[in-house]
Write a protein that binds this DNA or RNA. Structure first.
Lengths: 314, 314
DNA sequence: CCGCCGCCTGCTCATATGAGCAGACTTGCA
DNA sequence: TGCAAGTCTGCTCATATGAGCAGGCGGCGG
């Protein structure tokens, strides 16, 4: 396109989009036929001079969702728009809302839903509406009895999701990570615990997030790991955790010994699930989101625009 | 609009603008009639959920131009878009380009064009194309013989505009501001100088910018004023200068004694011009732009989006 | 409980837009 | 210079969209 046409296409776009003129009127104004005007507008669009944004907290980016499905082999993808977002918290809230919307619209409604816990899951539980489903039974898929004062958010999350969905919650009465392998084995051999894990394995769907491998990790906050532990994991290549299990950029377990002390579904258990919904948003989770998608841990991803684009770039 | 409709309108907008579906297809997808879809889209637009931007250095904001004409009584206004601008220099360049475009398209072509000088005018002269007009005679409307090494930009500006327009330049051989009133009167009584000023008064059009009243002023740079002088002017209410004359927010001369020592057209001379094109861009010139427009110094304004919105807010 | 008012819906019809095509025009090459 | 290929133009026709209207529905006051 030569310079003259480029300028004309801009003039035409101004008249068309800002002044609501018809292509015919624009033609008269610029001494062009209306067909020429149509072509100029098409060129302006195609060259990216026209940018259309949907400004709304609930806005999604369907073309990016499509690319995630097609290029990353996801069954489904939900990408929330970052347009007009001013803080990471806002982005997190939008993503949680989208996850809640997705669950609500999900058909067939899962009878048993396996959930992890953490900040993201808690926020999703808050965004769900009463009656989002009728009779959904929720089961925890990884240990979450907290060791300190923030106790109970793991349980509260599962209970809230179940309650608002008109069902009941089955909690996994165990810490996430134990200090000794023997303790972990003892706990898992407990009838109740083993039963919960068995139930979790049979869930119709899993809903989980992923944590970044850094000092903001909820495992540090909850007292399961120290900052030094996490630093060490990072040195070994960890990019984040899923259901309490730390993975590298390929989705492989970084520290098998640590993993053996972690209670709940294994990553392979998760991969065996039919519907595996991961909800991952925010700059700090780009790397782990990538690992989760690449290694097939999720079949459905709910995320934000920037994270999605990161996945598609790589 | 209730919450449900709001959400639907966002879904519809996504499908319409991002996926290029027809309203009919959207209707099928969302189980609505196509008329409902059309109404939802109209609502989304009207509520401002849809934002259409034209991303191009030459893009203008016609609705803002219209408002400037209607609400500020300008004969014409050119507002360049700030979309995607990263530095003040870029904004300045866009505005200068727009001014050059405006001059080039101007009909009838002025036979005599009075110009001021400064960074903005210089940049406009650089953006003009060879042959932008045929036989335009350019006359300086205020003194500009420089006192220091930056000498000659005033003259170079006028000459470049004239040369590229296939005409010749008439320079005003005088400093902008003189130290003593007597000197100024002596200079103005010189036959040549008086003749140039007389010619300037009869110009078909004036093209000028305005300077901010701060330490970046080109008058300080050129040595006509000291920083202390400008500080004093600011104390007296100066918001900037036009053709070397400092005005307050009402467009009145701030310091009559200083004004009397300034060579060139008076502000009233400028106001007597038929076509008075002011080119003013940048955050630091908001106040002076306001004064220029309010006091009728210009009949045509070329500016940037942010400055224009500032003028309309007040 | 009934009737009136106003909003919302889905229509008809007019208009605006996009697809595709035939001819004119330019451009590159022998 | 002359030819062939590709590009651009302005058309016809099909489709998508918007304006405006009649009927239906729900809400409110009597």
């Amino acid at each position: 396109m030569d310079e003259t046409d480029e300028l004309l296409s801009i003039r035409a776009a101004e008249l068309y989009y800002e002044e609501n003129k018809t292509q015919d009127e624009i033609g008269q104004a610029l001494r062009l036929t209306r067909w020429k005007v149509g072509r100029l507008l098409a060129q302006a669009k195609q060259q990216g001079f026209i940018r259309i944004e949907i400004l709304h907290p609930r806005a999604r980016r369907l073309p990016i969702e499509r690319r995630l499905r097609e290029e990353r082999g996801l069954e489904d993808a939900i990408v929330v728009s970052s347009a007009g977002v001013s803080s990471p918290d806002e982005l997190q809230a939008r993503t949680a809302q989208a996850a809640a919307d997705y669950l609500t619209a999900l058909r067939p409604v899962p009878r048993t839903l396996g959930v992890s816990w953490g900040r993201t899951l808690f926020e999703i539980s808050q965004h769900l509406r009463n009656g989002w489903a009728t009779g959904v039974n929720v089961v925890q898929i990884n240990g979450g009895v907290s060791l300190n004062r923030r106790a109970g958010t793991a349980a509260a999350t599962a209970v809230a999701i179940a309650q608002k969905g008109g069902g009941s919650a089955t909690l996994l009465p165990s810490p996430a990570i134990l200090e000794h392998l023997a303790t972990k084995e003892a706990i898992e051999s407990d009838r109740v615990v083993a039963g919960v894990i068995e139930l979790a394995r049979s869930a119709d769907a899993y809903l989980f997030s992923a944590g970044p491998a850094d000092h903001t990790s909820v495992h540090i906050e909850s007292g399961y790991l120290t900052e030094a532990d996490v630093d060490l994991l990072v040195q070994k290549g960890a990019v984040g955790d899923v259901v309490g299990r730390y993975i590298d950029s390929e989705g492989n377990i970084v520290d098998p010994a640590l993993d053996a002390r972690t209670v709940g579904l294994t990553l392979d258990d998760v991969r065996d699930g039919r519907l595996r919904i991961a909800v991952i948003a925010g700059r700090s989770k780009h790397a782990v989101a990538d690992a989760v998608v690449r290694s097939g841990l999720c079949s459905v991803l709910v995320t934000d625009e920037a994270t999605a684009l990161h996945l598609l770039d790589g």
